[in-house]
Nucleic acid binder design. Structure first.
Length: 116
DNA sequence: AGGGTGACGATCA
DNA sequence: ATGATCGCCACCC
């Protein structure tokens, strides 16, 4: 579970954001939003600032909340009041990594290797 | 086993 | 918009 979640978070591109719940679902663990958050507390090398609460709200408190906002604005993410303008910056994951891989293969499928 | 906790989320007053 | 409530789930006493 840990790896799938971290992988999902790392897929969020610069200038885009997602939510704890969406990351959990994308990793194949619907309902595990809290675990996503928990997991980020020790993880290094992670674009943690791109993960927000539902609706684009920053769930951190105190200084870290300010830092998250600062880092997001630094990469071009616009806020509307206290929340991120999800309309413009929400990153949509493509189903499960599994299904995703299949689709990708299907599309790139043109190798005339089917002979024998 | 039992109870409390949280970078959550959906719902309702 | 704000606060309360409840469901959820892995951890940690």
């Amino acid at each position: 579970m840990r790896e799938r979640i971290l992988a999902a978070i790392r897929r969020i591109p610069r200038g885009k954001v997602s939510t704890y719940g969406a990351v959990a679902r994308a990793a194949g663990h619907p309902g595990a939003a809290r675990q996503v958050a928990r997991l980020m507390r020790g993880a290094v090398d992670l674009p943690w600032q791109r993960v927000l609460g539902a609706g684009g709200e920053i769930k951190l408190t105190g200084d870290s909340a300010f830092e998250q906002r600062f880092r997001l604005q630094s990469e071009g993410v616009a806020f509307r009041g206290r929340r991120v303008d999800m309309k413009r910056h929400e990153f949509k994951f493509r189903a499960l990594p599994r299904a995703k891989a299949d689709k990708r293969n299907q599309r790139n499928r043109k190798e005339p290797q089917a002979r024998s």
